[in-house]
Structure formats: structure tokens, C-alpha cells
Amino acid sequence: MSEARHGTGSTGPTEVSLPATREVLATLRAGDEVVLTGPVYTARDATHERLLAGLSSEGELPHGLGGQTLLYAGPTPPAAGRPSGALGPTTAKRMDRATPALLKAGIVATIGKGPRSAEVRRACAEYGAVYFAAVGGAAALLAMHVTAAETVAYAELGTEALVRLELDRFPAFVAIDARGEDLYLTAALEWRGAADIDGGDA
């Protein structure tokens, strides 16, 4: 099931069901506030090395990841009755070296935090993929939007294992859209100097 239900009026976030098709992702715009529902796969530094190795040896994405979403995160163990006590995005740029190849192979969306390289922007535009930014440091709140977790592979990596999570209205922003428009490039420019004009010596 893949759809994007845009919020009514100017305040509500857009509901996005995962895995999302490229047609649905194409309707999203950099800066849109979204909530994500459906499966994602956690993958961070060491996981990416394994995925690239699998892609190289098998000629396709391992573990049935075609069409799926990667969440750059290494969760804490279960706590407070939740699959993870705290789960939030890690810095996306460390994965930039692997991302164009993974998008080309069929990953359609990634979730992380922070600006990314021009190569990733170009790859998002070329393959119709989207990069979502979640709020770093909001991991106790974000963990409340994770309803299930199942280790798929690389359990020996500990928190860096490939884990399939079920998200339920996980809050995020569209950081790079499928046209390659980048919120990180425009948002800071919009506010650059704004604090200074106000005095800004607080």
C-alpha cells in the first residue's frame, strides 16, 4: 500500500505509507512535514559496508531491500515496553559514499539527519528517491513511533545490525525531494543574518 495523503490546510503533516512508490515520492517537496508509516530497515556505517559487499557479490540489493527505505540509526535496547527505548537518526553524510549506488540498485528513500553531498542530491533526482530528515536528539519521542523490530541480518554488529522496524506516524521533514531540491541549502539561507538584524547578542 503506497500513498501520500497531503495534510488539509497549512498545518497538518503529509501522511506517507511505506514502502512508497516513486510516483508517490514525486509528489513530496523539500520542506514538507511528513509522518511515515510502514516498514524501514536500520543501516549505519558498518551495515553499509555489508550492503555494498552484498550488492557487489549478488548483483542486486541483499535481503529483499529493493523498493525499501533505509533509516540511518542504531537503536538502544528495548525499554519502557517499546522495541527500543530510544531511536533517532544518525548523521547521513557518513553514508553518502554508498548512497548513489544503493539508490541506483533500488532503495527509494532514506531517513537520517544533516546535510548530504551533491552526489546524493543528483542521485535522488536521477532515481526519483527522497531523503527525509528526522530530528536528531529526539530519540525517546521517535521511539514511541516504532511498533515492532526484527533483526534481519548482521546480528554480530550489535546496534549496527540490519533491523526491520515498523513505523507508526514517525515525524520527519522532506530534506531532499525527488527533483534534487535540498532543504538544507535553502533553510539556513532563508534565516541567515535574521538573528543579527535583531541585535542577536543574547
Partner: peptide, 15 residues
Amino acid sequence: AAEVEALGIGPGGLG
């Protein structure tokens, strides 16, 4: 602090 605020990076780096 004034120079850093003027960068416009903002909460979450999203302005």
C-alpha cells in the same frame, strides 16, 4: 554567539 546565531542553521539544522 552573535556570529553563530547569524548563520541561520536553526534547530535540527533546518533553518
